[in-house]
Design a protein around this nucleic acid. Sequence first.
DNA 1: GGGTAATCGAGACGGTACGTCTTGTCTTAGG
DNA 2: CCTAAGACAAGACGTACCGTCTCGATTACCC
Lengths: 205, 205, 205, 205
Amino acid sequence: MSLVRSRAIAAKAPDPTRRNQQSRQAILRAAFELCSERSYEGTSVEAIAARAGVGKQTIYRWWPSKGAVVMEALNDVVGAASDFPDSGDVIADLRRQMTAVTTLLSSPDFGPVYTGVIGAAQSDPAVAEALAAQIINPRVDACRKRLERAREAGEIRADADLDAAVELLYGPIYHRLLLHTRPPSAEQVNTVLELAFTGLGPARA
Amino acid sequence: MSLVRSRAIAAKAPDPTRRNQQSRQAILRAAFELCSERSYEGTSVEAIAARAGVGKQTIYRWWPSKGAVVMEALNDVVGAASDFPDSGDVIADLRRQMTAVTTLLSSPDFGPVYTGVIGAAQSDPAVAEALAAQIINPRVDACRKRLERAREAGEIRADADLDAAVELLYGPIYHRLLLHTRPPSAEQVNTVLELAFTGLGPARA
Amino acid sequence: MSLVRSRAIAAKAPDPTRRNQQSRQAILRAAFELCSERSYEGTSVEAIAARAGVGKQTIYRWWPSKGAVVMEALNDVVGAASDFPDSGDVIADLRRQMTAVTTLLSSPDFGPVYTGVIGAAQSDPAVAEALAAQIINPRVDACRKRLERAREAGEIRADADLDAAVELLYGPIYHRLLLHTRPPSAEQVNTVLELAFTGLGPARA
Amino acid sequence: MSLVRSRAIAAKAPDPTRRNQQSRQAILRAAFELCSERSYEGTSVEAIAARAGVGKQTIYRWWPSKGAVVMEALNDVVGAASDFPDSGDVIADLRRQMTAVTTLLSSPDFGPVYTGVIGAAQSDPAVAEALAAQIINPRVDACRKRLERAREAGEIRADADLDAAVELLYGPIYHRLLLHTRPPSAEQVNTVLELAFTGLGPARA
DNA sequence: GGGTAATCGAGACGGTACGTCTTGTCTTAGG
DNA sequence: CCTAAGACAAGACGTACCGTCTCGATTACCC
């Protein structure tokens, strides 16, 4: 899985065996650094090439756009989607994972780069596709698998739509993150879990 | 509230009483049209000025950036946040309102412009602030007020955090919309309402 | 003559009796000051209006262009073309007058403004015409009149073309001034007078 | 001499071996054409770039200003300063050369472009320097060399300052050209030569 | 182990848009 | 009606990047 993971967006043609791995690393590193220092929008392909000590053509040979480069750089930073922990207590496991996410998103190094890429995805379908395929879906899948085990264990209603459940849990975090109403936080995670598992409705029976 | 709503971002200095309202309308109209025809990213200030028959300076005099113009145009299109309907059945009212939202977001005229502005908000703090203040918060407030009445009527648990509840309901829609996993839909609204009100946990008692 | 002298370029229409003389003076003064401080090119109508505490319209109402304003300001500074002195020695009189000219042209306050206006005259026929009519021709005339008296006194050949003679005397100064090969100087005046009166040819008979 | 002639003003930095000569020629050609059709002032860098089918940056990469471009274009048109003819009769040679100059300056294609550049030189020191170094000085030198031979041949006084003599001969032409009193002409050349060689003073001895 | 083909750094190129500046006209209030 | 103030349409300025292109100069594979 992880072998193909980080190349879907980069399908451009030339012989990958001749690729200079030092240049590739320098480019990804420069891209992430520049996005952290300035911002996603404030980072140009020219600047990435200059910082990496690389010709612009070397970037355009292997990636279709700035978004694709930063996408891949981001993916290198966060690493592969690991499976969810399974302690037997689904709420504790979700709390752990979701809290880690809000912490990462609040990091000044990572958060703005990530939201920058999501911003770029709104106007660049290739970035949007790569974002969903490489970053979001693997993590949604890992979460849904954990929820499936919880459902089998009776911790979750038997009739729950688990894809929708993942969106119900993470949606509020992205709502805050992307609409800039207030920052996501560990405290929010607790509230969301409580509401989502107990339900908004009045106590039943 | 709605008196000040649509000018927060435009604070730039010159005497507003001398402003040419025809130019203002032509600019907002041109901005929205161009964003609909091409895309947010594909629309330039130059093009807006040309389409509106206006000098570029007239745009830069009154707005700090393209994002601010489109923001205001969008706000004109969607109109003020109306109060939620109150039929006495909170779930029916939410379904009506949330379905209208997903329909609007799925419209090819409106959806891409809206996501474009949200994308711009990720790199432009002024746009982000205007988005929250002018578009999101008024609607969040309206929804929370309806939920408050529902809580008083016993349709919602007495201890529920209603701001979080709004995020719980709308977050899943924005999750799909902005992460481009799958489009928001009326069907999603039903699923979300069912899950959010009943809760993920197993039937109690 | 000198009553109408300085208005030829300004023929624009409105009733001159209603003209505010304080504004006129402030404009001319501001124009000359700004040209001295920055340069002719670096001075804009906006800046002149601002410095003079005057609306731009007040400038455009009375003058057709920046060149016309500076032209008139310059004319105020140098004053009317005075008659040449007549000591009975034409060469001494010319030396006095021409040396005064090179001194004025070398002044950092005046020289650059003057060459700036001559530069503007190369692209603006109205300025060119005003320059010739208001600045150059009156002085050429005064000089020619002095040469006429010298011719009558036998100091100058009876068959000399005196208009050409004036150009012969002042041309070398403007050659240096406008082609920027080397600055005009008092020393140049001596050389020019010597050459022009004695002639380049070998001593006759 | 003529090898280095046409690059003095263009010292801007980039590697000249990589320069696209087709673009260079297209730019110079477009610049001269536009200046002829409209005027020097009425010609913009944008228009030159558009007419030449070239990006603006390509102009700014190799020239510091519009003046520098037109300067070089002009220099290409007039060609290198040729040596003066030497028929043994210095007055005949000067008449030939100076008449050619007044003819060129009276040409509607060339004259206004040339005066436009001289106008620009009054506000742009770089253009002024290039004008002197590339256009004026080579021709002054060629003329002075011819006068030196004439002095050796006894056609000119042994004690004449020949640099001043060149200014004496050409100054009157530029006086008319740049102060716009009346146009330079072949007839003027005759008058100037007669006056300059014979002298203004009464017949000697 | 030499030939050849692709990648590499570098950077010029034709373009587009930026945000600023100035021009000359038009509009508004005040005297 | 003239004035100061300044908004307006127009459009050029010089800069920044875009994505493509052309250069030698290394590579690295194949014969």
